[in-house]
Amino acid sequence: MPDLADVYRAMGTLLPFEFLQPRFMRQSLLGLLLLSPMTAAMGVQVVNLRMAFFSDAISHSAFAGVALGLTLAVNPRFSAIVLALLIGLGVTFCHRRIRLSGDSVIGVFFSGVVAAGLAAASRDRAIARSVQAFLYGDILTIGDSEIFVLAAALPITLAFQYFAYNRMLYLGLDPVLAGAHGVKVGAWQYIFAGLLSFTAIFSVWSVGVFLVTAMLVVPAAAARNLAASAGGMFWWALLISLSSSVAGLAVSAQDWAGTATGATIVLAALIWFGLSLLPILLRGARKHA
């Protein structure tokens, strides 16, 4: 595995901020700079396709995934990814094949993974401790191996966004219309579900199970309010996600704050969301004037 020491040294030189002096902070920043564009871009589709509940179910599958890994004596991060992928594809399969609403299908899977995770945690204290670490996440403990995984996942996500952005938007508008006009609806739904499952599990590492959906949804929802076009929504989401991550990391490192990094990142994104409501309120006021 290549050594990232030179990268961290360069970051220290280019970004001479006090909070970035410890190496683990530079590691965290690098991790966030890789993760944030992924969650921002995938979040645009989560918002447009109304799939917030889906990403919630995937992030909660981390419970069962970690428990499964510890029970089978395999790396829990690996088992969490595999289970998340299976859940994501399973939900998509059932939604397409069973005449049951999407929410109901996701609800069934959601209940299943949470119940399985809790059952395993209640049976074994060691599993309970490991599962707890995934509840809150901690970007400050991110290691080089995770950074390499993120560095590999980012170009894949961006390639997906290049080829699928228009198609996913079409699909969100009307799947029948999209299909009639040449979009391979099923294939893109499965690819999206798989990639979103990966992104959600990567986010669990940094912000924890509880805040994954916020990491995906809040920047994209704010972007939707601020953008004048669907193309602009993508760039707004990137800007909001990246700036919230950097601001959240910087603020959480201050002595006066002393807050968890993941939660602070989400709070920073929520400030963006609050600001994004202003143009909507102004437009509404002008309409009623």
Binding site: N48, Q161, Y162, F163, Y165, N166, R167, L169, Y170, G172, L173, D174, V176, L177, H181, G182, R224, A227, A228, S229, A230, G231, G232, M233, F234, W235
Partner: peptide, 29 residues
């Protein structure tokens, strides 16, 4: 279709809608 049931706050312009079907490059470029 008879009608399109979509979120009317979606920031998708008419020009972008035409681009959705046939364009090879994403709307963000």
């Amino acid at each position: 279709p008879q009608r399109l049931d979509f979120d009317r706050e979606l920031p998708l312009t008419a020009g972008e809608f035409i681009r959705l079907g046939e364009s090879r490059s994403p709307l963000w470029l």
